[in-house]
């Protein structure tokens, strides 16, 4: 049996892949979103800033920020799942994991956001679940919360067109 790779080598490759995937998208940086990783599980983090406000009287996070956050989380989850096998097999080495060497991202076909309560002036978190991923189309559900994991402030479902794959 092949000896398992040292844990730091595996982690380094996964983290390089994730940051390359995220850093290639300017709008993710504009919103200030980053991703926490535990194994293959991703959690998107949206740190609160005053520019994210949609209703200064409450104040509440802009509905468009919430929609953007959920859509970004869904697309990165799909991109991550597409790359996972190549990352784990070592097919992609650290040198192949730069923003300019990333595969094409899926394209949104439709996206439906369900606003459950107003987004408070606090950090927000989101996790996406791929319910179906075929050769052409994928269906993703995503949930976002702030202080309590069980009190979602928004959820969404979207359909995505998957990038054409080689072979």
């Amino acid at each position: 049996m092949k000896r398992p790779e040292p844990v730091q080598v595996v982690k380094e490759r996964r983290d390089a892949a994730l940051s390359a995937l995220v850093e290639q998208v300017p709008y993710i940086g504009f919103l200030g979103i980053h991703f926490d990783r535990r194994g293959d599980e991703l959690t998107a983090v949206l740190p609160y800033t005053e520019t994210l406000i949609g209703n200064p009287a409450l104040p509440a996070i802009h509905g468009g920020v919430t929609a953007s956050f959920l859509e970004v989380t869904s697309i990165i989850e799909l991109g991550w799942a597409l790359m996972w096998e190549e990352i784990e097999s070592g097919e992609r080495t650290i040198e192949d994991l730069t923003p300019s060497s990333m595969p094409r991202l899926p394209k949104t076909i439709d996206f439906t956001v369900d606003y459950l309560r107003s987004g408070l002036p606090r950090d927000a978190y989101a996790r996406a679940r791929i319910n179906r991923s075929g050769r052409r189309y994928a269906s993703v559900h995503v949930e976002a919360w702030q202080d309590n994991r069980s009190r979602l402030f928004a959820q969404a479902t979207g359909h995505f067109l998957m990038p054409a794959r080689d072979g």
């Binding site: 998208v25 709008y27 919103l31 949609g54 802009h62 509905g63 468009g64 920020v65 929609a67 953007s68 956050f69 859509e71 970004v72 949104t108 996206f111 956001v113």
Partner: peptide
């Protein structure tokens, strides 16, 4: 990004 378009449509 679609999210920026969503923000425009929501506003």
């Amino acid at each position: 990004h679609g999210g920026a378009v969503s923000a425009l449509m929501d506003t």
